[in-house]
């Protein structure tokens, strides 16, 4: 479905920050795309045919290959765009991008996207900037995996998801959580039950409800505050 300015609200922070002339040029090439939980937006080592600019929802970027292929190393929402490989010079990349929270994106054909990058220094500048912030997020994740306890990481993950979904309630199975956090399911269950016992969250049948946000922030590692500051 081609983009329709009357019915589709553009909320992606890169696109909406473009100069009016650049946005006017790119708009007819955008296509509205509904992101549904579990959809794969980029498959490792397959040519990226579209670039997605999320307006809402969450996209998980999972570890490169092999054993790490289920491990979440960063998340992208309305502040960014994926995949970045065409922008960085290659048609494909080893990254898997998976929709983690339902939402809307606007996507553009890779060929059109590269034309726009050529014609819009501002788009290029913002994409470089976003690439850098994504690298910071991945670096933070590396450190977090090394040093922080499961419960701290779970708390951080819940906060980041709630921020992006703009809701204190969302669906998430333990299996997905265990993949995202790179720990066994028992580890997730234990950490989640503890947060529940403290009255911070309510967790039942895949539904997570954040009851006490300030306490959840207290339970999260410092990575949450650092990453939130970084995406402003």
């Amino acid at each position: 479905m081609p983009f329709d300015a009357r019915s589709d609200l553009l909320a992606n922070k890169i696109l909406t920050a473009l100069p009016a002339a650049d946005l006017a040029r790119i708009k007819p090439k955008l296509e509205r795309f509904e992101m549904t939980f579990g959809a794969i937006l980029n498959t490792p080592n397959q040519i990226a045919e579209h670039i997605y600019f999320p307006d809402s929802g969450i996209i998980s970027l999972l570890g490169t290959l092999g054993e790490g292929s289920n491990l979440e190393i960063s998340i992208v929402s309305s502040e960014g765009a994926i995949p970045l490989c065409p922008f960085l010079g290659t048609p494909s990349s080893p990254v898997r991008a998976l929709v983690q929270g339902d939402g809307i994106a606007h996507r553009i054909k890779t060929e059109d996207f590269l034309d726009e990058c050529r014609d819009s220094p501002e788009l290029t500048r913002m994409l470089l900037h976003f690439t850098r912030s994504l690298m910071l997020q991945i670096s933070q994740c590396a450190v977090c995996f090394r040093f922080h306890r499961i419960e701290e990481r779970l708390a951080r993950w819940l906060l980041m998801s709630a921020d992006r979904m703009e809701s204190n309630e969302f669906l998430m199975t333990q299996k997905t959580l265990s993949h995202m956090l790179g720990v066994r399911r028992e580890g997730v269950t234990k950490a989640a039950s503890h947060l529940q016992k403290l009255g911070i969250i309510k967790y039942s049948r895949g539904n997570i409800h954040i009851l006490d946000r300030p306490q959840l922030e207290g339970a999260a590692c410092a990575c949450y505050a650092i990453l939130s500051a970084g995406t402003q």
Binding site: T64, V95, A142, F145
Partner: peptide
């Protein structure tokens, strides 16, 4: 960097 993260975990 991504692989460092995975490896750390």
């Amino acid at each position: 960097i991504s692989q460092t993260a995975v490896c750390n975990r």
